[in-house]
Amino acid sequence: MLDFIRDPSIYNLVRGPFVWIAFLVFIGMSVYKVRRLYLMAKNEKVVLPSIKIGAAGRSILHWIFPFGSRNWRLKWPVTITTFVFHIGLIFTPIFLLSHNILWYESWGISWWSMPEKVADIMTLLVIVTSVIFFMRRIFAPEVRFVTSSNDLLILAISFFPFLTGFLAYHSLLLPYKAMLILHILFGEAMLIAIPFTRLAHMFYFFMTRAFMGSQAAGWGGKDW
């Protein structure tokens, strides 16, 4: 099994066509899903006319920054966990030196990359906060009651690329090449899963917030 995973042809596969598939599905399906929700909102007649750009923007801004809203302040341990998790989840893959090198080799593009040490710490933080989220799903009664198997699945989907990436970087558990291939596979799986699962909240966040921010403004209040 290990020899199979380390096989160079497997590497070429996950490094070549699979990357294309993952990015095309991710981008294509995400555009489709956002467009679909927008069109449904348009059909519903009452949704789009209620949108107030200013209120929507303020609502998004208050919720996208830590402690910007009342609930972020009340539930500060969750706030810290979720912001550390999401910042690591989004920025580490984009500004990782090794990823930049891959893009440069493939497409000739690259941008600023963060120091390796920082990336390492952020990856570790994503792993730790994932575990905290998992514990919260099990031990917080109000969360446990509504936790289903696919909640654990989407947590796993975002957890394993970081775990395998961390283990590969430090050559732990499995030989570097084998762990790297697993890492790439998990990463591609995550990209594909985003538009198909509730990980789509990555885009829907802005749309649902815009709606509720506008609703609250319509009632003469605010939703943060």
Binding site: M40, R198, Y204, F211
Partner: peptide
């Protein structure tokens, strides 16, 4: 298939942060 139903169904991450808002809870 309306936006207001689908948005809730396809976004809610079951985090339980709404609990603290509810006077019943």
């Amino acid at each position: 298939q309306t936006a207001r139903i689908r948005a809730v169904m396809e976004t809610c991450i079951h985090c339980g942060l709404c609990a603290g808002a509810c006077q019943w809870y």
